[in-house]
Amino acid sequence: MSVDIIFKIAGVGIITAVINNILEKSEKKEIATLVTLAGLVIVLLMVIEMIGGLFDTLRAIFRLY
């Protein structure tokens, strides 16, 4: 199973943190909050797709219809 999704999520987290710092330094706080929200939404979509896949596999295995 691919482990790179963990690194992707960590990457998005760190990048949003860096961008936040830059934006705060240049006095654009409202854009910083938008960037945090965008990062959260992207990561949320990735994780939800994974959890969906996990639940489908478990449902198929345990015949949990």
Partner: peptide, 22 residues
Amino acid sequence: VKNVKPEYSLFIALATGAIILI
């Protein structure tokens, strides 16, 4: 990621759990 951005640690924990179970 916890000290950089605490919210993402939950996502990483979920993803790792999902990978292991799959």
